[in-house]
């Protein structure tokens, strides 16, 4: 391919995935993702959902990479690595190759400059690893929050980095593109990752930051049933004070977010989010939510909650349990000189 030497060569594979990460990334770019990639200097050498090459053309490409005849800069995996049954990988074969995705990844990952897990499945195992984990699904380098996974704790790609985990189910398209581009520009290094491999430019924020319900949170004015406007933490399961991600500082699909949409954050960027149960109900002990903000001592929370509840303005209290604004902000501040 002309000009391809100077471009970053990216191969995207799908393991035990729902394809949702690809559906998300296809929303990226003002003139479409393909233009955006080209403009950013990324040559998408193959992607299962969008590329022309099929069948033996793909098998030939993968063999050429494996045998060192073709260069691989970025290896992206979407979906968990289904290792079962009995480490055969047969729950997820790459069609036409008589070889499992698990085994293809073992071959290809060491040959890439960088290996990127897109989505919580590829990062930590995700939904396929829930419950009895029928397919022995793991992430590329994590099994839940335990380092290891398909490639093992010692794995480093050719540039010396562990797997970069762009967690989320599905991740925001911006998280994926910004992580890929930060790698191509050399701006993402090992110390730009947190303890479970997530880029800190995303993971240094909490999903709660910037939520449109923050005023309700401050006063512990809580929604009691779905579709009410109040904070979703006390009763309806919101985990955003513990889940990392700048989810509420970005616009999803032109302006949404989970909590804006009226439902709890289920901490989809966290390893093991799939093992929770009763997602839309807050687990409580003696009336106090079990999952408190990570850095807030329980006694404080209880004292603050009691104080702020007693000081809640009527507007906030009433609107918290309504689905439309019932009490608008006071107009007293609107005085205009005639």
């Amino acid at each position: 391919m002309a000009g391809s030497e100077a471009m970053t060569r990216m191969l995207w594979l799908q393991g035990a995935s729902c394809g949702g990460c690809t559906m998300s990334i296809l929303e990226s770019g003002a003139s479409g993702w393909f233009d955006e990639l080209r403009q950013s200097g990324i040559d998408l050498i193959w992607h299962p959902s969008v590329s022309e090459q099929t069948g033996d053309e793909v098998a030939d490409l993968l063999e050429a990479i494996r045998d060192g005849r073709e260069r691989l800069d970025l290896l992206v995996l979407e979906g968990s690595v289904a290792r079962g049954p009995s480490l055969s990988g047969r729950f997820n074969m790459l069609a036409g190759t008589n070889r499992s995705i698990y085994h293809w990844l073992l071959d290809l990952a060491p040959l890439a400059d960088y290996v990127v897990a897109v989505g919580s499945c590829a990062a930590y195992g995700g939904i396929p690893a829930a419950g009895v984990n029928p397919t022995d699904a793991v992430g590329l380098q994590f099994e839940g929050s335990d380092v290891g996974g398909a490639l093992g704790s010692g794995f480093r790609s050719k540039r010396g980095l562990p797997v970069i985990n762009v967690a989320g189910c599905a991740p925001h398209p911006g998280w994926v593109m910004e992580s890929l581009l930060a790698l191509t520009t050399g701006d993402l290094s090992g110390d730009g990752l947190d303890a479970v491999g997530r880029p800190t430019f995303i993971a240094n924020h909490l999903a709660h930051h910037g939520c449109s319900r923050n005023e309700f949170y401050e006063f512990k004015a809580s929604a009691e049933v779905m579709s009410e406007r109040g904070c979703l933490m006390e009763h309806l399961g919101c985990r955003a004070t513990q889940a990392v991600g700048d989810c509420n500082q970005r616009s999803w699909n032109g302006g949404g977010s989970c909590t804006k949409g009226g439902y709890a954050c289920i901490a989809c960027t966290s390893p093991g989010f799939e093992s929770a149960q009763n997602y839309l109900q807050t687990a409580k002990l003696a009336g106090i939510p079990v999952g408190l903000p990570t850095d807030m001592p329980k006694a404080w929370f209880v004292a603050l909650a009691a104080l702020s509840k007693s000081a809640t303005p009527r507007r906030v209290r009433v609107n918290a349990t309504a689905d439309h604004v019932v009490v608008p902000p006071s107009r007293s501040g609107d005085k205009r000189s005639p």
């Binding site: 729902c18 949702g20 559906m23 998300s24 296809l26 929303e27 990226s28 189910c169 599905a170 616009s251 999803w252 699909n253 032109g254 302006g255 949404g256 977010s257 989970c258 909590t259 804006k260 949409g261 009226g262 439902y263 709890a264 289920i266 989809c268 997602y279 839309l280």
Partner: peptide
């Protein structure tokens, strides 16, 4: 397609995978 899916930003919070 992305513009059409802005429907989800209004009704469903996000797409794919919404609890709306």
């Amino acid at each position: 397609r992305a513009r059409l899916l802005e429907t989800m930003g209004v009704i469903a919070g996000k797409w794919p995978h919404s609890l709306a």
